[in-house]
Amino acid sequence: MAPVSTTLDRPEQRSTAAELEAREVSAWFGTNKVLEQVSLTMPRNTVTALIGPSGCGKSTFLRILNRMHEKVPSAHLSGEVLLDGYDIYAPGLTVTATRKRIGMVFQKPNPFPAMSIADNVTAGLKLTGTKIGRSERAELIERSLTRAGLWNEVKDRLNQPGTSLSGGQQQRLCIARSLAVDPELLLMDEPCSALDPTSTYRIEQTIAEIVSDVTIVIVTHNMQQAARVSQQCAFFLASQGTPGQIVESGETAQIFGSPRDPRTADYVNGRFG
């Protein structure tokens, strides 16, 4: 059984990236089926991109991976999601422990306005009841902000409120916040779609840097971004009235270079989208 305790007890021993495997995941909202038997392996230390036109279930699938899907009252699912071989929906693992190990960054940056930048970074620890000493705290804040590529810009104003930053900076703060709890996986739901190109570039840089510690799964509308940042890719599609499915998945180079399915070829060549 996967351990529930946190590895922050011994900061020098950080958790390693995990592999996530979805097996035959189907999802419903009420009686409306939105995902049809999606199976996908997201290997450790890689960036897996989920691409496809809007409305085909990519975000729903992503939210199933960290158990945010069940927050909607009428949501159901079937299938399994295995984190290093252990099903996260099985009774042994609590929801909160799962979400500590599988973090999420949202489309619209959402730092906590009532907290300073420093407090935002350590918010995850406070919320999960993880104790940390004063010096370790300062070190953790610096480390997380550095990994997120934000340290140099905010190191002199750590006590200002989290919302005093620009959009791109706020998003990097959210990334730092997610990294501070030392997750094994980081899910990103169109993290750059609300940002300008410069901020987008910075975040793509960040993704490239942190993937050595964290497995990343990113939903993106932007095919060029998927081609830039990911090593693995999954193409989702839902035609009129049918639930979303994976049409083709595999190495990014193949998906974009020589896709096997004609629908994939049409999408990546911009013939629809």
Partner: peptide
């Protein structure tokens, strides 16, 4: 070829039963 095109209709593993999630244990 290094991509996988899933074949619909073929399924391995547990049947399509919706799981109870988020209920009180």
């Amino acid at each position: 070829a290094r991509t996988v095109v899933p074949v619909s209709g073929e399924h391995v593993g547990s049947p399509l039963v919706a799981r109870p999630i988020g209920r009180r244990t």
